[in-house]
Design a protein around this nucleic acid. Structure first.
Length: 226
DNA sequence: CCCTGATCATGA
DNA sequence: TCATGATCAGGG
């Protein structure tokens, strides 16, 4: 595949993102010669990789954001015909140990969500992957109200982890931010602590944004364009 | 295993 | 029908 250059600044990134709105995944994949799978069953992160490659995200940087020099995190989000999210959005791995002194302000969740470039992509499973189209990009920063909502959920969930109640956490908790398993399979285990402070092995977890939250983000911006 | 990118698919 | 819990691929 072809390698894209890294955008120098925010407006260059936005111009590049806006330039692919309306195009199909096949058209974009062809332009950079990225092989396209028949569907996403075996390559669930393919759309994210495609957009990442096309926009020139810093490949290989791990704990960093996609556009570290711009302080921007890239997220593709599958949407239905109304432009509303079809899936929750993974944010970051949930830390199950070494949480002494961790606050919302110093959390990975706040860091990652400080500034996000959302790329909506048609995701209805009845649409062939090749014909799904890319939507208008949304550069988002949490409002004070949104950040407070996230902070409250984060605090509630982190309190449970610190108290050794990881096994009691359910995806139903949290209004906008939830914790769910995040692993290669059910056999993957990582260390945590139980309520007696004893080490246990448990499924790795991740923080996800619930659809109700990302739906607000997407629809708020749709209004702005009208 | 940990983390990146996420969506799949089954039970309620 | 739909969200939760499970899972897929790849690099380090």
């Amino acid at each position: 595949m072809k390698i894209q250059s890294i955008p120098d600044n925010q407006s260059e990134l936005m111009q590049r993102a806006e330039s692919i709105a309306g195009y199909s995944l096949k058209e974009i994949a062809s332009s950079i010669e990225l092989p396209m799978p028949p569907d996403l069953k075996k390559e669930k992160g393919w759309v994210g990789k495609l957009i990442e490659l096309y926009l020139g995200a810093n490949a290989g940087s791990k704990a960093e954001r996609d556009f570290a020099h711009l302080g921007i995190e890239l997220k593709t989000i599958p949407v239905n015909r109304l432009g509303l999210p079809l899936e929750t959005t993974f944010v970051s791995v949930a830390p199950l140990t070494a949480n002494h002194g961790i606050t919302w302000e110093s959390s990975h969740v706040k860091y990652k969500l400080n500034k996000v470039l959302w790329i909506p992509v048609e995701g209805d499973r009845s649409l062939p992957l090749s014909s799904r189209r890319i939507g208008l990009p949304i550069l988002w920063q949490p409002s004070q109200r949104q950040e407070l909502q996230l902070k409250q959920d984060w605090q509630e969930l982190m309190d449970m982890i610190v108290l050794g109640q990881i096994e009691k956490i359910t995806a139903r908790q949290g209004e906008y931010l939830q914790i769910r398993p995040k692993a290669a399979n059910g056999k993957a285990l990582t260390q945590a602590f139980n309520e007696h402070g004893e080490p246990i092995m448990t499924r790795p977890r991740g923080f996800y944004l619930k659809k109700q939250f990302t739906s607000q983000i997407l629809s708020n911006y749709i209004k702005d364009f009208r």
